[in-house]
Design a protein around this nucleic acid. Structure first.
Lengths: 250, 250
DNA sequence: CGCAGATTTGAATGCAATCAACACTGGTGG
DNA sequence: CCACCAGTGTTGATTGCATTCAAATCTGCG
């Protein structure tokens, strides 16, 4: 199932790719080697840097080596909706591989290391390697499953449930990649960003978080989320990690 | 851009596939012929029939030949969220091709004709035909783009904007497939279903629709949506069809 | 120290949900 | 043929969750 023996020969960018794809399926030595051949342009970015802009015609996909990214859409009146956030090791930007118009912006939320891969190269590899194709496709479908959970949250969950669900999801998603402490994970979003992600107001996010803390479910120290009552937190939003399609959910 | 010359030799199921894929890209004679070889199990279903259930392990994908389908998720407390609706000619159910767990239910919303294709057959075809692979993948990515618009609606648009946006989208999406009258399209959803789709209450959907009618933007006769002021309706929600990726097939 | 961004708190407002009837439709069976 | 019923659409009144407005800390940082 998940990671990873000796990718020591690989650089960090393709190592990220290989590990991620290994976590959602089986990757052969050959395929891994082919992935390592991909030309990747690596780049470090600061906080809140737009990487690919809404309205653009994308020619590259972005893979996240370290840090956190988000996708967001700006509405004419200036309001914004964050569509998803992505943690280190994920490949957030396959969504545009076969689309010719960016309906959203891809941006960093903390200082991050990213890798850009030309669509041309990616498509070539996909044509040549059916199994890599399947894994990458699967990655985009899992992405879509996460979108669906957002729809459910925004449509039919209360503020408390939304926040609880998000915290659960972030915790589980980060455990796949890193190997963090059993009861904590990073939460790099400001309350303003949480508000834009959860379709709530800043003030209400603040009060909802206070509620969860008051009930002894979680603690927030700086950018760290400490979970005191995992069972309880799951119950808040009836969180079920099955939609993440992990072989070994926490 | 779209369809289609003589698919007279094809049956309705594969004809649907060919037309849809032709509308989002270029399909060679060879590829079309290969699609026609796919074993499809056709079926007629009544209203509100669940085709593939939440929690199941999917082994087939469902293609919609005629009618309307929706995907929905049931929450523990009995609330439900409709994730998307699909009109005739679309292939709603590629989302599960490389997933092993259904996080939602696929169901009919009106009497419909559907076709089931085994994942096994589909995957085989995809391996053999890179261009078919690309077009089908693109289809799932467009699906995801529609999900993103739902997130934006539910998160940051008012009830009036949500309803307006949905009406615009349905109108445009139906024009791709059918060739309906310039100013009307089908709207087969009850107000209860609209509520579950838009994350609103039944009562509020009713009043919002009345508002749009009172402003002379639309008219609703039975299951038919007549648009009196297309420009105005677009303005209501700042609708921009670019995310549907229609003008510029790969 | 000063300043910008982030978090917190209080008070007022409002959009949409909820509760409760009533009217209209089509289908079914006595 | 009509009574009945379930599903749909409509309307009014009330409630409440979340927003908005406003301002006060707190924090990191140049």
């Amino acid at each position: 199932m998940s990671a990873s023996d000796d990718h020591s020969s690989l650089d960090r960018a393709t190592d990220t790719l290989v590990r991620r794809l290994s976590s959602i399926g089986t990757l052969s030595q050959d395929d891994a080697a082919a992935l390592a051949e991909l030309p990747v342009r690596r780049e470090f970015v600061q906080t809140n840097v737009d990487l690919i802009n809404q309205g653009a015609v994308p020619t590259v996909s972005c893979l996240l080596i370290d840090g956190f990214l988000c996708r967001y859409h700006l509405l004419p009146e200036g309001k914004r909706q964050i569509l998803s956030i992505h943690c280190a090791g994920e490949i957030p930007d396959l969504q545009n591989l076969y689309l010719s118009y960016m309906d959203h912006t891809l941006a960093s939320v903390v200082p991050s290391e990213v890798g850009f891969i030309a669509h041309k190269d990616l498509r070539e590899l996909i044509r040549a390697r059916p199994h890599v194709c399947e894994l990458l496709w699967r990655e985009t479908l899992i992405d879509a499953a996460i979108f669906r959970q957002s729809i459910i949250s925004l449509g039919r969950r209360t503020a408390r449930e939304r926040v609880g669900h998000l915290l659960c999801e972030l915790f589980v998603r980060q455990r796949v990649i890193d190997n963090p402490p059993r009861n904590a994970c990073r939460l790099p979003l400001t309350q303003t960003q949480l508000a834009d992600l959860l379709g709530l107001s800043l003030v209400h996010v603040n009060r909802t978080l206070q509620g969860l803390r008051a009930d002894g479910l979680v603690e927030l120290e700086g950018r760290l989320l400490v979970i005191h009552d995992w069972e309880g937190l799951q119950e808040v939003s009836a969180f079920d990690p099955a939609y993440l399609q992990l072989d070994d959910p926490v």
